[in-house]
Design a protein around this nucleic acid. Structure first.
Ligand SMILES: NC(=O)c1ccc[n+]([C@@H]2O[C@H](COP(=O)([O-])OP(=O)(O)OC[C@H]3O[C@@H](n4cnc5c(N)ncnc54)[C@H](O)[C@@H]3O)[C@@H](O)[C@H]2O)c1
Ligand SMILES: NC(=O)c1ccc[n+]([C@@H]2O[C@H](COP(=O)([O-])OP(=O)(O)OC[C@H]3O[C@@H](n4cnc5c(N)ncnc54)[C@H](O)[C@@H]3O)[C@@H](O)[C@H]2O)c1
Lengths: 205, 205
DNA sequence: GCATAATAGTGAAAACATTCACAAATGAAT
DNA sequence: ATTCATTTGTGAATGTTTTCACTATTATGC
């Protein structure tokens, strides 16, 4: 079966809110209530879940903790994936301390740069490595995913380096289309584009 | 006619690359070449453009500068939209200096916080205002869009404040679904979600 | 000027995603 | 026990987006 791209994105969002709900001690939740929290329709949630199994109970909905665990399993969050950030500039610096990542099962296990001003320094307790050592350290640290926050000009070159070291998943902030082997997945975060889409909306009003 | 959401996002991406191409002095480009630069299919580009008119020339493609101008017109980028950032923390600080925004026709015209440590200080040459003065200053500065980088707990409250002051477009980084009047548009940038989607892909391999 | 190649634009088809609507299960109240 | 309300899970219907496949037009080389 083919699972819609958007379903995966939504599952992530459900997961986060289930996390909060569990913290608050909520035990049960219906697709209806969850929908109103996450801003979706109840049937969307049920359909999304139905691709992976059936986790609810007719009449009473879902057990928050169970559903949370199931989604973690689906998204592969159980084992605490290890992530590297490459590029300790403005953005890399903001991201390295972001609690939202760790909270949800990601571990920023290493950070890299190519500037002598940054290599050897500590950022939020993490030693900044020389990008030249990526391959060795990534293996050593068990890095599976890379967050790319280098200047646009360097992005393709670094992509080649990290995919060459066996990385199969990249979260890219540089506003450029990265060419990668086809077993590598890239997600682009394009803030200027997000703003421009909003701008379109503003002009339409 | 209904224009696909994704079309608008892609137009933004085309725009950026046309900007680079123009800078490099490229005069003409075919949908095929542009497609390979932006990572889409040629027919996707042609179809996207066809919603708004016909801008190319059979046999030779598009004139880079003309197409760039047309897309700017479509997205409402011509007049240089004025944007405020609310929340001068880690992320707000990274964004305030981001050249990518100004380059593409956005002006960060004001920044806000509620902390006495930040109000009155300058960030990249911009005076940080008290969020309590938002309404007045937004009017004064002609703010049309807001980038929201406040802690999650404050996001809904600030949303109420800024939409109450007439803002109709929000770029939200807090991992929460914002309730807004229905003539207000919110785009959520959810980095943890982006990572989780990647994680799903990694587990599937 | 003619043949050939390149390319835009676009209906129609196919693929994909959301929403509807209802059966079946469960829970709550009496 | 029976009734009524709630809620899931899911086929089917509907809606949306992408891709195909073709026509018409322009450019190029001879
Ligand atoms: N700052 C923002 O708000 C923002 C927003 C959206 C997108 N971006 C994009 O994110 C990327 C980074 O932005 P930034 O503002 O943090 O830039 P920056 O210049 O502050 O940081 C870039 C960092 O990458 C390092 N670097 C350069 N070449 C490298 C290489 N070959 N290997 C390893 N490290 C290298 C630099 O030393 C620097 O520390 C850019 O592509 C930018 O367009 C930035
Ligand atoms: N740091 C990251 O890398 C990152 C990544 C993704 C998402 N986010 C999200 O972005 C938001 C901001 O993150 P951050 O790391 O920059 O947080 P931060 O704590 O560094 O900054 C928040 C800023 O908002 C200000 N603030 C608090 N309440 C306010 C109010 N009522 N009005 C105006 N200003 C107020 C604070 O004074 C502070 O300067 C959070 O919701 C976070 O979850 C952050």
């Amino acid at each position: 079966m083919n699972i819609p791209e958007r379903t995966i994105e939504r599952l992530s969002i459900y997961y986060r809110h289930l996390y909060y709900l569990a913290q608050q001690g909520t035990f049960n939740i219906s697709s209806r209530s969850l929908a109103s929290i996450v801003g979706e329709k109840p049937e969307t949630i049920r359909k999304d879940l139905s691709y992976f199994g059936s986790f609810g109970k007719t009449g009473s909905g879902y057990v928050v903790n169970d559903l949370k665990r199931e989604i973690a399993k689906i998204l592969g969050l159980e084992q605490g994936r290890r992530v590297a950030i490459v590029g300790m500039g403005n953005l890399g610096l903001a991201l390295v301390g972001y609690k939202g990542f760790e909270m949800l099962g990601f571990k920023i296990a290493a950070v890299f740069d190519n500037s002598l001003n940054k290599i050897g320094k500590k950022y939020r307790g993490r030693l900044c490595h020389n990008i030249a050592d990526f391959s060795r350290i990534a293996r050593q640290e068990g890095i599976e995913m890379v967050i790319l926050t280098v200047p646009t000009e360097a992005a393709q070159e670094i992509t080649k380096l990290v995919t060459g070291s066996g990385i199969k998943a990249l979260l890219n902030f540089a506003p450029v289309h990265l060419n990668v082997p086809k077993d590598v997945r890239v997600t682009n975060v394009d803030l200027a584009t997000a703003l421009k889409s909003l701008s379109f909306f503003v002009s339409r009003r």
